[in-house]
Simulated assay, not measured.
Amino acid sequence: MSDEAIEETLGKVVKLLAYITDKDLFAEFYRKKLARRLLFDRSANDDHEKCILTKLKQQCGGQFTSKMEGMIVDLTLARDNQLKFQEYLNENSDVNPGIDLTVTVLTTGFWPSYKSFDLRLPSEMVKCVEVFKGFYETRTKHRKLTWIYSLGTCNIIGKFDPKTIELIVSTYQAAALLLFNTADKLTYSEIMTQLNLNNEDLVRLLHSLSCAKYKILLKEPNTKTISPNDIFEFNSKFTDKMRRIKIPLPPVDERKKVIEDVDQDRRYAIDAAIVRIMKSRKVLGHQQLVLECVELLSSMFKPDIKTIKKRIEDLITRDYLERDKDNPNTFKYLA
Results as ranks from 00 to 15, higher is better:
residue 131 V to I: 15
residue 132 F to D: 01
residue 132 F to K: 04
residue 132 F to C: 04
residue 133 K to H: 13
residue 134 G to W: 01
residue 136 Y to M: 13
residue 137 E to K: 15
residue 137 E to H: 14
residue 138 T to Q: 15
residue 138 T to H: 11
residue 138 T to C: 12
residue 139 R to E: 15
residue 139 R to F: 08
residue 140 T to A: 12
residue 141 K to C: 04
residue 144 K to P: 00
residue 146 T to G: 00
residue 148 I to D: 03
residue 148 I to H: 08
residue 150 S to F: 00
residue 151 L to G: 03
residue 152 G to K: 02
residue 152 G to W: 02
residue 152 G to R: 02
residue 152 G to D: 03
residue 153 T to A: 05
residue 154 C to I: 07
residue 155 N to P: 00
residue 155 N to D: 12
residue 156 I to G: 05
residue 157 I to T: 15
residue 157 I to G: 01
residue 158 G to M: 10
residue 159 K to I: 08
residue 159 K to Y: 10
residue 160 F to E: 06
residue 160 F to S: 11
residue 161 D to G: 00
residue 161 D to E: 14
residue 162 P to C: 06
residue 162 P to K: 09
residue 163 K to S: 09
residue 164 T to I: 13
residue 164 T to H: 02
residue 166 E to Q: 14
residue 167 L to M: 04
residue 167 L to R: 02
residue 168 I to N: 13
residue 168 I to F: 09
residue 171 T to R: 00
residue 171 T to D: 01
residue 172 Y to L: 11
residue 174 A to L: 04
residue 174 A to V: 03
residue 175 A to W: 02
residue 175 A to Q: 02
residue 175 A to G: 06
residue 176 A to D: 07
residue 178 L to C: 06
residue 179 L to H: 04
residue 180 F to M: 10
residue 181 N to S: 11
residue 182 T to I: 01
residue 182 T to L: 07
residue 183 A to K: 13
residue 183 A to Q: 10
residue 184 D to S: 14
residue 184 D to N: 14
residue 185 K to I: 12
residue 186 L to E: 10
residue 188 Y to N: 09
residue 188 Y to Q: 08
residue 188 Y to I: 10
residue 190 E to H: 06
residue 191 I to N: 07
residue 191 I to H: 06
residue 192 M to I: 00
residue 193 T to Y: 09
residue 194 Q to T: 06
residue 194 Q to P: 00
residue 195 L to C: 06
residue 196 N to D: 12
residue 197 L to G: 00
residue 197 L to K: 01
residue 199 N to I: 08
residue 199 N to T: 12
residue 199 N to E: 13
residue 200 E to F: 04
residue 204 R to L: 14
residue 205 L to M: 09
residue 205 L to W: 07
residue 205 L to C: 09
residue 206 L to A: 08
residue 207 H to A: 12
